[in-house]
């Protein structure tokens, strides 16, 4: 009876439907062939079903990414909803893969699906985690670099939610700048 009752409870709908993408670097294939849409979800319950089913980010091999984007937005600069935007970038040391990476990524996911950025949540496109030997990265993507108020609000809330020290500084980079330079050289448009 308990099982039946549980099944009858309505799931909790999210504001947006989200898509999980997985990227695995296979050098012999073009970049886009290495990027796969895993699935989409639009309830709290389905999010957790997915989260507990897939590998933790820290267990992925180097060169892999997870991306979570609003359904219909592809996790690439070229998408029309991304191309004028940018990203709040969190760069991690090698040691942090084992201490902080999974916690920071889960917190990022909860910010997205919970619409943590108030009226500016509509500016959010998605988030990406890159697993790399030289240091992992997490980025929160927004759609319009010029929306300074929204971008900085999102950055301040995001930094607080990640529990970063007030002395730590995170930067926001325009995709248009990242696309033309290596990310380590891209200048920050905003910092919080």
């Amino acid at each position: 009876d308990v099982v039946i009752a549980t099944e009858n409870v309505e799931k909790h709908p999210l504001q947006s439907r989200w898509a999980l993408w997985f990227f695995k670097n296979v050098r012999s294939q073009p970049w886009q062939c290495n990027l796969r849409l895993v699935t989409t979800f639009n309830t709290v319950e389905d999010f957790w079903a997915l989260y507990t089913h897939v590998q933790l980010a820290s267990k992925l091999s180097s060169g892999c990414d997870y991306s979570i984007f609003k359904d219909g937005i592809e996790p690439m600069w070229e998408d029309s909803r991304n191309k004028r935007g940018g990203r709040w970038l969190i760069t991690l040391s090698k040691q942090q893969r084992h201490s902080d990476l999974d916690t920071l990524w889960l917190e990022t996911l909860l910010c997205l699906i919970g619409e943590a950025f108030d009226e500016h949540s509509e500016e959010v496109c998605g988030a990406v985690i890159n697993i790399r030997a030289k240091g992992d990265k997490i980025a929160l993507w927004t759609r319009e670099t010029e929306n300074r108020e929204a971008v900085t609000h999102i950055g301040r809330v995001y930094k607080e939610r990640l529990g970063l020290s007030s002395k730590a500084v995170i930067g926001y980079q325009a995709h248009a700048d990242t696309a033309t330079k290596s990310s380590s050289l891209t200048k920050n448009k905003f910092v919080v």
């Binding site: 099944e7 909790h12 504001q15 709290v44 079903a49 909860l110 919970g114 619409e115």
Partner: peptide, 20 residues
Amino acid sequence: GKRQYDRDFLLGFQFMPACV
């Protein structure tokens, strides 16, 4: 209105049997 969920609410669903 917008469906906003705070982190504690969302985390409360993490280990629910229906999610496994």
